[in-house]
Design a protein around this nucleic acid. Structure first.
Lengths: 331, 331
DNA sequence: TTGTAAGCGTTATCAG
DNA sequence: CTGATAACGCTTACAA
């Protein structure tokens, strides 16, 4: 029994034409309130729901938002550690407006059509961005500034985060502060590094080349560079790592050198992953509001999907210093 | 310029009818090889790609697989910590076959249509499962046994994992072993608990009620229950936690009690999250092959999508004991 | 405010 | 093996 009811069934039930049903259900303003209510009642009665495929074909909109999670912040699965929460928030926000996220692989043949796309963790010069722009897909970059017109941007306040970290350490009396960078082909990595340099000068500290170490967000690089730092003739008393994963690895390297993190070397991370609070000692870190990031990205995508000519506005999400024992002398 | 080419353009270019184009492109067997090649060439030439909406309307298949990540393993965002990697693998595998994952929220109005669904981290009696089954959507459960006919199952070997953990600890000489359970409304939580009981008996150890503590996978519960265990008159010498998050929290509680994890109390986790190796001491754990889990789930979904009457087969993915310092006396 | 009817781009049926 | 042609279910001018 029960083939899915179509718009025609609803029309019959409500005693109107299918065009009217369509209008009523899509909340067009040119339907009388009465008819609209009657139609809606009929639809509810029959358990009718628009067929998205038919709608897509007829109206050229799919109610789908593509989400592309690249891997410039670590291999793709690692990126999902960071972005999982963002993804969840995106999904939630889109759902509220009757949209749904389509999870795209970066090198997908991208067969499906969608009304907007959110890109995360990909490079600014990724050809994907050009492709999408050319197809007139409204774009939202999360921590990615898409170099095309009409793309929205949502990102964390990375420079602000670095300032918070350095101010905190400086206030604790640290003067020899090192930075293990993230991948500098990402906005997060590049901005944190740039601000580190500026702020170190601003604080009147010496900007030593050997205190700026190339990492790539991965724990492996964090471990490696920390070991190098500790081996210096004059090791730093504090390390700011551009990711929690690197910071956790730093703690490990510090323990293994016979020192005690917090007491002997202070460590600050970035992100506030779940594991940060569970570290030993618990990790001081710059928390990013991943929930808010996702919410804003989704909202921007919806706006652009519904009026592609709207001028996309940038959103910079504040970050927060979370102080834990890894920067405490009595750690 | 350049409206997307349609099947008609390809037909014209190749000098055949649109019906033939459709057949050729869909690899039907009733097209001559020559025509097929000619059509394909024309399609490539024009940069033609099927419009998925039109296809969905005509053929009743969307090339979409819904992925529902519930939150019975922690709030939704937390679940993504575990399942992010699974998700990535699903996405990759689906992409290979021209399908794409649609990320559904559990309480979504599920407007979109899809050819199969993969459910993760939801309860077996979640109404969603019934809904989907009724709509004749082929189902694949990851660590969820869907109580409907024709649903495939993919899961880790939880009992095997527990046996590995206990055998390891027993071999190290531990006799007072406790378990902090996961949420027992999940297969992972329930099976690990059940096997813990069986195996403790099998090893000839005493099965003490106060050594079986109710957790829910979250770090908070891990911390709480570990503290309780340490406060016992006769605390255990080893703890098996049903998740790494709980195990990491256990390490913390142990440190804070003035004991040293590994030396004084051994800890084994489950999952092998990225953070496990970065803990202090690094965490011994039962690694789940999340990549394989996702791959198998996607493969099962594809099979069912393409022939819904195929008998779904169960897949149990082996787990692996990863020994690190948290079970080493010299930890 | 509402109805009629022409697409939207495929797939599938049925002749040929 | 190939070609017409009728669905598929909806949106949207255009008319009324």
């Amino acid at each position: 029994m029960s083939a899915r009811p179509t718009i025609r069934d609803v029309a019959r039930e409500a005693g109107v034409s299918i065009a009217t049903v369509s209008r009523a259900l899509n909340a067009k303003d040119d339907v009388s309130v009465q008819t609209r209510e009657r139609v809606r009642a009929a639809a509810r009665e029959l358990g009718y729901a628009v067929d998205p495929a038919a709608r897509a074909l007829g109206a050229q909109r799919t109610q789908l938002v593509a989400v592309v999670v690249g891997d410039n912040a670590g291999p793709r699965d690692l990126s999902l550690i960071f972005f999982g929460k963002v993804l969840a928030a995106i999904s939630r926000r889109l759902g509220q407006s009757g949209y749904e996220p389509l999870l795209l692989s970066e090198r997908d043949d991208t067969t499906h059509r969608f009304d907007a796309a959110i890109v995360i963790g990909i490079d600014e010069d990724d050809p994907l961005i050009g492709d999408l722009a050319q197809r007139h897909v409204p774009l939202v970059g999360v921590d990615v500034r898409c170099p095309v017109p009409n793309a929205a941007f949502v990102g964390s306040d990375h420079p602000g985060g670095m300032r918070l970290a350095l101010a905190h350490l400086h206030a604790l009396g640290h003067r020899r502060i090192a930075h293990i960078t993230g991948a500098t082909n990402t906005k997060a990595g590049a901005e944190r590094l740039a601000e580190f340099r500026l702020e170190v000068e601003r604080l009147g500290l010496e900007l030593r080349d050997d205190y700026v170490r190339d990492g790539d967000f991965s724990s492996a690089s964090g471990y490696r560079e920390t070991a190098e730092l500790l081996a210096l003739a004059e090791p730093p008393t504090a390390i700011v790592a551009a990711s929690d994963l690197m910071a956790l690895a730093a703690l490990q390297a510090i323990w293994e050198s016979g020192r005690q993190p917090g007491r002997d070397v202070a460590v600050v991370g970035f992100d506030d992953l779940e594991a940060a609070a569970l570290a030993h000692p618990p990790l001081t870190t710059i928390r990013q509001d991943r929930q808010e990031l996702g919410m804003l990205a989704a909202t921007a995508a919806l706006e652009l999907a519904e009026q592609p000519d709207a001028t996309p506005r940038d959103a910079v999400v504040p970050v927060e210093l979370v102080v834990r024992a890894s920067t405490r002398r009595d750690g």
